[in-house]
Amino acid sequence: MFSSKVQLQKRTPENGTDRESYLTLLVDEYINKESTESKCQVLANLANFAYDPINYDFIRDVGVLDIFIHVLKNENNGTLLHFAAAGLSNLCIDPENVEYVLKHADLKIISTLLKSSHSETVAEAITIFIYLYHSHAKSAVESLNIIQDIQSLTNSENKVISNLANIFIDDVNKGHCANN
């Protein structure tokens, strides 16, 4: 459920940690943990915070987007990649976050997630591209082989992947029809 600043203030105890401070603690914890299991847990928490638009400014300010992008560029652990993709998927509905992703991430790296053996990660990657396609990043998405890669997923045995891929391809086809 989405929150308002007033609701957040009401739920924060008088001497409690505010949302931005808590996210900062999570970022520090992720950076300082050595255990992959601990990093996965913290990254899952960060991805959950990315669900609520009230957190977007905090997420940008404390470097959560940078962590998600760093994981996508540098990690090969499937669980870490899944949580980073989930976090970006949650954030890419916001134009400022899209701009940040376009500036600091490589869409080719995100497109490699379409070939992941983890179905949830593939679904998150398709969702990222759906949001990017509906933003000012449409031409960046069209310039790569992403459309063909997602087209190949429309017949996936996994219904979530198949449905998301078909939604994306339908959106592309509607966009091309509108341009003709």
Rank of each mutant, 00 (worst) to 15 (best):
N158C: 12
L81Q: 08
I167T: 14
L91Y: 06
K5S: 10
H82S: 02
H70P: 01
S135W: 10
G16A: 10
S3T: 10
L46H: 05
M1T: 08
F168M: 02
V27F: 08
N32T: 00
L43H: 03
L113A: 04
Q41Y: 09
P13H: 12
L88V: 07
N55I: 02
A50Y: 01
S139E: 15
V42M: 00
C40P: 00
A125H: 06
L107Y: 09
V42S: 01
I69H: 04
I69N: 03
D149C: 12
S135K: 05
R19K: 12
A84E: 00
E14K: 13
N173G: 05
S21W: 05
K174V: 09
V98I: 07
F68C: 08
E75W: 05
N158Q: 14
A140P: 04
K159A: 11
D171T: 04
A44V: 00
T12F: 10
D28C: 00
I109H: 06
N90Y: 07
S4E: 15
G78T: 14
I150R: 05
G175F: 12
S135F: 10
D66W: 02
V42F: 02
R19A: 08
A50R: 06
S139T: 13
H136T: 15
Q151A: 13
N77T: 05
Q148N: 15
T127C: 11
H104F: 13
F168P: 01
S152D: 13
G16C: 07
N32S: 09
I109F: 09
F168I: 02
K73R: 15
G175L: 00
Y22E: 11
A85W: 05
T121E: 06
N45D: 15
I161K: 05
I161Q: 06
A84S: 04
E120T: 10
L80P: 02
L25S: 12
D28I: 00
Y56R: 09
N179L: 13
D28Q: 11
L107W: 07
E142G: 03
A178C: 05
L43T: 02
L72W: 08
D149N: 14
